[in-house]
Amino acid sequence: MAYIQVEEGIPGIRSLFQFNPETGGPLCDLAQALLRGPSPLSAAERELIAAYVSHRNGCMFCMNSHAMAARCLLGDQQHIVDEILIEQNTSALSAKMKSLLLIAGKVQVNGKSVKAEDIEMARNAGAGDADIHDTVLIAASFSMFNRYVDGLNTLTPSGRWAYEEMGKRMSEKGYQL
């Protein structure tokens, strides 16, 4: 049961968008700009960062939904998602993506955990300012979304298959109220 009176049966963040559409607007716009807007990172890579941070925060709703969106976007490469989230095996990733996930993991802990040498490593692997900016802001914004969703104890469907339709919609239509 959610901690506030949201409409029953609506899962996760969607129940909060409906409870308070006013803030739902900019939150959706932020997700759309970050995960689908112009970026040197592909939409799949950005969804992976989002799922990874949500996984580290133990937010099952965001983790499952963004992991599913990443699977849809990755197509025949979708095994990467489980390798990263379940097996902690990043061998299929580029050196650049590995270094960006490391930065995202540090941001999940705290902003100050990100050290100059982490940035250096990403740059040596080919990351530019926009890659680094987008990675930090995606990780920071999921540190927000995860807390919003779990801090109000919203409905979290169990089992990854409950997220199939959601992930498909997110991969095709992006984020809108």
Binding site: I103, K106, V107, N110, G111, K112, V114, I132, H133, V136, L137, A139, A140, S141, S143, M144, F145, N146, R147, Y148, G151
Partner: peptide, 14 residues
Amino acid sequence: AATFCMMNRYVDGL
């Protein structure tokens, strides 16, 4: 509170 957890990480993470 959640929003500041984002802002703080954005500001210090970079």
